[in-house]
């Protein structure tokens, strides 16, 4: 499993977003258990309904749109962070099965569980007599 290089990030093959917030790469933990690969991505301000997960050609792309809003009638007087949309892409190896990804979002963290693929059983090919 490796991260896409900047030049091959799918974000650049897609139309430019017309959002006013920046697009960030979410801070991510990736760990492997006995039967799955787990990704934990920090996307504060992104609701579960606003997460898009796509797998194309073994490239897993996760996009989250922030729904955080400024408090009404208030002006920002001190800023340490900006609300952002998030996007990150990973290339999955053959060891996992991208068709059975499970995704759960809670408290601003998206958890993706990618089960490991069952090893392909060795097949015997019978030889027919001509």
């Amino acid at each position: 499993m490796s991260e896409q290089t900047a030049a091959a990030t799918p974000a650049q093959t897609q139309p430019e977003t017309t959002r006013k917030v920046p697009l960030r790469s979410p801070v991510t933990d990736i760990y492997e258990t006995r039967d799955a690969l787990v990704l934990l991505m920090e996307m504060p301000g992104v609701d579960a309904n606003d997460v898009e997960i796509a797998v194309d050609n073994r490239v897993l792309t996760v996009t989250g749109r922030s729904s955080a809003k400024a408090p009404p009638g208030c002006t920002l007087v001190h800023a340490e962070y900006r609300d952002a949309d998030y996007q990150r892409a990973f290339t999955l190896s053959d060891a996992v099965d991208p068709s059975r990804i499970d995704a759960v979002a809670a408290d601003g963290v998206l958890r993706l569980t990618v089960p490991k693929a069952a090893p392909e059983p060795a097949r015997r090919i019978a030889v027919r007599r001509a």
Partner: peptide, 24 residues
């Protein structure tokens, strides 16, 4: 950097403080 990052907003009735604490 200091954690959690905070934004401070001033309004008519006081202030609003927002903090990014994902996973807490």
């Amino acid at each position: 950097r200091e954690f959690p990052p905070m934004n401070i907003w001033a309004g008519e009735n006081g202030v609003v403080v927002t903090a990014q604490v994902p996973g807490v």
